[in-house]
């Protein structure tokens, strides 16, 4: 089963507002545990911690400094 790692949809109002991935704290292909901090994104001078939604092997699909929006998939865990 593959679980998407998504930018949360419910943290800010403006659907068009861009965020940036400031840091991946887990590397591509690594094993991660559900709830572990794996990435950080920044929007409006606010740093959001992204945690793993499942146990498994992480595949990163958006890189550091990539621009993302609410609901975007930035990686998967299988």
């Amino acid at each position: 089963m593959v679980t998407d790692v998504k930018v949360p949809r419910d943290l800010w109002q403006d659907d068009g507002m861009e965020a940036v991935i400031t840091n991946w704290l887990a590397s591509d292909g690594s094993n991660v545990r559900k709830g572990a901090l794996i990435a950080e994104i920044m929007v409006e001078k606010s740093q959001f911690e992204v945690t793993a939604p499942a146990d498994g092997v992480l595949t990163i699909t958006k890189q550091d400094n990539d621009i993302v929006r609410k609901g975007d998939v930035i990686g998967t865990i299988a």
């Binding site: 943290l11 409006e44 001078k45 606010s46 740093q47 959001f48 911690e49 945690t51």
Partner: peptide
């Protein structure tokens, strides 16, 4: 410096800057 939409401004000049961190 550290400009943002949620600065507090007075007469068009920055009086205070703001930032956040969110943890699930």
């Amino acid at each position: 410096f550290c400009d943002g939409r949620f600065n507090i401004t007075v007469m068009g000049r920055k009086f205070a800057g703001t930032a956040q961190r969110w943890r699930p």
